[in-house]
Simulated scan of single mutants.
Amino acid sequence: MEQKMAQARTLSEDEIKMVLNYCRARRHCVRDRTILQLSFLAGLRVIEIAGLKIADVYEDTGKVRDSFVLAAEQTKGGFERRVFVGRKLNKALADYYPVIRKRKPETPLFQTQIGGAFSANTMCQLFLNIYSAAGLKGASSHSGRRTFITKLANSGVNVRVLAALAGHRSIVTTQRYIDVNEVQLARAVELV
């Protein structure tokens, strides 16, 4: 019998606020909040967040780009993809810029406590530590991504658009990320 791997937990708006508020007490508050926001507001994987360079996200003037491209080597699937920066993510990245403004554009967007680049594994550990310390059970580095996709699906975004935003080649993969919940079911019956 095939054993299913547990899916990352999808977070509610209250849980997202709780985690972001928890980060205010952390030593690297702005960095950690920005990392989480890239997960919640753009659906990025940890490998993608860890691979970002300053120049990927900011123009030479320090202005946040409206969108940026993840190179094939920065993604899980090995395919280049454009990431669109919405209003909330733009604000989070603008708030982060003073932390990194003196660094060279080709350096990692996020650095560990000792000043090196995050690996995907150390970024996963950061997510797990934050969620655990904030009191969220079952949340992982993939929770923000699942939350992003589910929130957009709940808002009626077409699954093909979701797949493109998530960088999935198949809508079947995207559909596995979407939690069916009572809100969706109640809205669905109102359409009849």
Rank of each mutant, 00 (worst) to 15 (best):
I114M: 15
G86R: 05
A164V: 09
H142N: 09
R24H: 07
L36Y: 01
Q111D: 07
L93D: 05
A92W: 02
L109N: 00
V64D: 02
V192P: 03
V180G: 08
A50Y: 04
V69Q: 15
R9L: 06
L93C: 05
E182H: 05
A50K: 07
N154C: 10
L70K: 06
F110D: 03
V69L: 15
L89F: 03
V192I: 06
G156P: 06
F118K: 09
N181A: 05
R65V: 08
R187M: 06
D60P: 14
L191H: 02
I35S: 01
F68C: 08
T34S: 04
D95A: 14
N181P: 11
Y177C: 04
A25W: 08
Y97W: 11
L44R: 01
A55T: 07
Y131Q: 08
V85C: 05
K17Y: 01
D95Q: 10
V172N: 12
S155M: 14
T112F: 12
Q125V: 08
R103T: 07
G138W: 03
L89M: 11
Q3W: 13
V183N: 08
E2V: 12
V83F: 05
V57W: 00
L162V: 11
R87H: 13
L185P: 01
S132R: 14
A134S: 08
T147N: 01
A55H: 09
Q184H: 12
L126G: 07
A6K: 14
Y96E: 00
E73F: 10
I100S: 04
R160G: 12
I114S: 15
L185D: 05
N129R: 14
Y97C: 05
K102D: 14
V189L: 13
Q184S: 15
P108W: 02
A186Q: 09
E190G: 05
K91A: 12
K104Y: 11
L128R: 13
P98V: 09
F118Y: 15
V85K: 07
V172C: 14
T174L: 03
I114T: 15
L165K: 13
L136Y: 01
Q7Y: 05
A188E: 10
L162Q: 11
I100N: 05
Q184P: 03
V85D: 03
Q125C: 12
I178C: 10
H28M: 12
A71Y: 14
L109C: 00
R65M: 03
S39A: 11
S170F: 09
I149R: 06
A94S: 12
A133C: 09
N129T: 13
G156M: 10
V85W: 09
V46W: 00
I171E: 12
I47G: 12
S170L: 13
Q111G: 11
R101E: 13
H142W: 05
L20Y: 01
V159G: 03
S132P: 02
R169V: 07
R187V: 03
Q113L: 15
Q125L: 14
R33E: 07
R27Y: 12
L89C: 08
A166R: 09
A71H: 15
S12E: 01
Q125P: 00
S170I: 02
Q111K: 15
